[in-house]
Amino acid sequence: MITERYKRQIQLPQVGTMGQQKLKDAKILVVGAGGLGCAILPYLIASGIETIGIIDGDIIEESNLQRQILYPEKTVNQKKVTVAKTQLEALNSNVKIETYTNYLSDENAIGIFKNYDIIVDATDSIKTRYLINDACVITQKPFVYGSVYRFEGQVSVFNYKNGPTYRCVFKNNSSKITNCEDAGVLGTTVGFIGMLQANEVLKMVLETGDILSGKLLIYNILNNTQNCINFQKTETRTIDEAFFNSEYNSDKIEATCFKEAVLNKSNFIDVRELHETPKIELPDVIQMPLSVLETELKKIDKNKSYVVFCQTGKRSLEAIRILKKHQFSNVKHISGGAIAIQNNIENEKSIY
Rank of each mutant, 00 (worst) to 15 (best):
N92Q: 13
I118F: 09
N162M: 05
I253E: 00
T86E: 15
A338K: 14
A255K: 01
K325A: 08
D284P: 00
V169C: 11
A183K: 04
L202A: 15
T75V: 05
I229W: 00
S246K: 07
C136G: 07
I211L: 09
A122Y: 03
G209I: 12
M204C: 06
I300F: 09
G163T: 08
I119Y: 06
S147K: 06
N77M: 14
L222V: 03
L196C: 09
G111S: 15
I138N: 10
L293K: 07
L317C: 09
S147E: 00
L222F: 06
I218Q: 11
V155I: 15
T101Y: 03
C310R: 04
V148I: 14
E62L: 12
L216R: 08
L263Q: 13
Y116W: 03
C310D: 14
S175N: 13
I69S: 01
D117I: 09
N220A: 01
E281M: 12
I345D: 06
V157I: 07
G111C: 01
Q342W: 12
K325S: 11
A261M: 15
R129K: 15
N94I: 04
T17N: 11
I110S: 10
S125K: 13
N230T: 12
L323P: 00
I300A: 08
E200G: 10
M1A: 13
K314P: 00
E152K: 15
F231T: 08
Y130A: 03
P72K: 09
S63Y: 04
H326G: 00
V307A: 01
D240M: 12
T165Q: 10
V76N: 13
K259T: 11
D134V: 11
R8S: 07
G194M: 06
A46F: 00
A33V: 12
N172P: 02
K24W: 02
N223S: 04
Q20C: 05
L36V: 09
C168R: 12
I28T: 14
I221K: 08
N267H: 13
K24P: 00
N223K: 10
I221R: 08
K74R: 08
V144S: 02
N159Q: 05
N343K: 14
H326W: 05
K314S: 09
K85N: 06
E281Y: 12
K161T: 04
C168P: 07
C180K: 11
F158H: 15
D121A: 11
S316L: 05
N179L: 00
E207M: 06
Y130M: 10
E4I: 05
V81I: 14
N224I: 03
Y43H: 11
Q232Y: 07
L88W: 04
Q68N: 05
K74Y: 04
F268Y: 02
I334A: 02
L263S: 10
T101I: 08
A109F: 01
P72A: 09
Q197G: 10
F328Q: 10
Q66W: 01
Q11H: 10
A340M: 13
Q311A: 06
R315H: 01
F244P: 06
M1E: 08
D58Y: 05
Q226C: 14
F268V: 14
Q21R: 15
N230E: 14
V271G: 04
F268M: 10
A122R: 13
I286A: 03
M288P: 03
S350W: 01
V205L: 11
L293Q: 04
K298T: 07
I49L: 09
I351S: 05
I345K: 14
N303H: 14
I280M: 08
G19K: 02
G35V: 03
S47C: 12
